[in-house]
Amino acid sequence: MEAPPLDEAFAVPAAEDQLERAAKGLRERGYAVHIVDGPEDARALVSALVPVDKEVFTASSETLRTAGIAADLDESGRFRSVRAQLAELDIAAQIRMGATPDVVVGSVHAVTEDGIMVAASASGSQLASYAAGARQAIWVVGAQKVVADLDTALRRIRTYSLPREWVRLQEVYGQPSFVGKILILEREMPDRGTVILIRSEIGF
């Protein structure tokens, strides 16, 4: 099986005015928003935002891995990492812990200029915590994921995120990927969600 066609146009970081429009839209929809210059800034900010006395779940994310955020939260010993505990649990317990952590840190595949976020997943393992399961949610998002509207966001999943993840899984596990579930985040409850927009390209 071959990977789906890749649209490289979705790898281009958004301009500053697009980022500002997305930040404004997100704030109007209930999110706290930070715009930072690069991955290291996002990494430092996440470490400052995540409480050290609460359980934190890192959703599978190339953005978190590449920025070093996943390693900070799961391997440094400073935080109560859910993922660090999962290997010792059965599958049912792993799913429950990942669905209802105190804090989830992850990413999304697209953010529209009016503040809608879209996340896709094969298994859906991170989507429960994104939608409602976690008491606090933090999303770290590269500038190339900012798009004009929801139709474009959904097209980005199919023509950029999926092909990139397909290739990654083939290289790591020898198997293709697929879109199993899509979550559309239109609005957030007060004081729950934080979005960190990075001015550079990172993740899929």
Rank of each mutant, 00 (worst) to 15 (best):
G180H: 07
E16M: 08
G142H: 11
A131L: 15
V104S: 11
W139D: 00
T112P: 02
R29S: 04
L26G: 05
E75V: 04
S76A: 05
G203S: 05
E28Y: 07
A92F: 13
Q136A: 01
I95G: 01
T100K: 11
A120V: 08
H34A: 11
M117L: 15
L73G: 02
G38E: 13
S81Q: 04
M189V: 13
W166T: 04
E88C: 03
G180A: 07
M1S: 13
G77S: 09
G30T: 03
V33P: 02
G142E: 11
E8K: 08
L64R: 08
L45H: 07
D149M: 11
R29D: 07
A122L: 04
S177W: 03
L64I: 05
D102E: 15
G98N: 09
D37Y: 00
R80L: 15
G193F: 00
A148Q: 12
L197E: 01
S161M: 11
G180T: 01
A14N: 10
S61N: 04
E171G: 04
L26Q: 06
L150S: 09
R96Y: 12
G193M: 00
K145D: 10
A87S: 11
A148D: 14
S47R: 14
A14C: 09
A137F: 03
A44S: 10
D151E: 15
I35G: 00
R83E: 13
R156A: 05
T112M: 01
S125C: 07
V103D: 14
I196M: 00
D41Q: 10
V103F: 14
E113F: 02
R27N: 03
D41A: 14
L19I: 06
T152D: 15
R29N: 06
R65A: 07
A122I: 00
A131Q: 02
A122K: 08
F10G: 07
A131H: 13
I157G: 00
E186H: 03
M97V: 05
D191Q: 10
D41T: 02
A122E: 12
V36M: 02
R199G: 06
S129C: 13
G115D: 07
G174M: 09
G30I: 02
G77L: 06
F178L: 08
A92L: 14
E16C: 03
R156H: 07
E113V: 12
I116S: 01
I138H: 08
D72F: 03
L154G: 07
V46A: 10
V103L: 13
L73K: 03
Y160Q: 12
